[in-house]
Nucleic acid binder design. Structure first.
Length: 210
DNA sequence: GATTGGATCTACT
DNA sequence: GTAGATCCAATCG
């Protein structure tokens, strides 16, 4: 698989987010690969986005987001969970795409071993789940997405319906429709927060309705 | 130095 | 449907 070059990521974050759907994310551990197809993403764009970690300016935690595009921004949250993002836009502008769900395709035995779940769709249908399944941690923060450890490439979703909705798990800026997913994928995250069902998806390209 | 809250998940009721 | 786990980084004193 030929990995996508930094120029792919150095564009508008929303364009990159949609263009990532359907592509493969692989983790190479001593030659053995595990990973899958990206089916759900969210965009976090700039210091004016209240949900973005860069909202309060540059810090030691979010500094990778200010760096060049095409790298992984990995951070720890909720005491248990690593989150995987891909840095986008030009160097100096803090933005990233959060990878929220995968369709596992490579290294299934390894993934099953790491994830103590019963149902297959629970393996990687959430941002904390997929990092646990692929064993992505803070050591991958700042790593290139062209390898050797992290690899992103392959064709984008071709003709599959894509939907968008508000972002999950954030308060400020939750209504901004910057979450994108493959509408027909059973691997999309089902997590709900605060008893509130996630907002229903809107097919991209459909006329705006009131 | 201490406190607080977070881009979540699992288990249990 | 809801609580507990679990810890780092940012913020405040």
């Amino acid at each position: 698989m030929r990995p996508l070059p930094p120029a792919f990521y150095g564009r508008s974050t929303l364009a990159v987010a949609v263009d990532l759907l359907g592509r493969e994310l692989l983790v190479n551990e001593n030659g053995s690969l595990c990973g899958g197809r990206i089916v759900e993403v969210e965009a976090y764009i700039g210091e004016n986005d209240p949900a973005c970690h860069a909202h309060r300016g540059r810090t030691t935690r979010n500094r990778v987001m200010y760096g060049p595009p095409g790298r992984a921004y990995v951070y720890f949250t909720y005491g248990n969970h690593w989150m995987l993002n891909f840095v986008t836009e030009r160097e100096g502008f803090p933005a990233a795409v959060l990878i929220r769900a995968l369709e596992p395709r490579a290294g299934l035995p390894t993934i099953w071993n790491r994830r103590r779940v019963r149902r297959e769709y629970d393996l990687t249908n959430g941002p904390g789940k997929l990092t646990a399944a692929l064993r992505i941690t803070g050591e991958d923060n700042g790593a290139s997405l062209e390898g050797p450890r992290l690899l992103v490439g392959g064709p984008c979703a071709n003709g599959e319906p894509v939907a968008r909705s508000g972002r999950v798990g954030v308060d400020a800026g939750a209504d901004v429709p910057w979450r994108f997913y493959l509408a027909n994928s059973p691997w999309v995250s089902s997590y709900r927060r605060g008893g509130r069902a996630r907002s229903a998806g809107i097919p991209i390209g459909s006329p705006a309705t009131s």
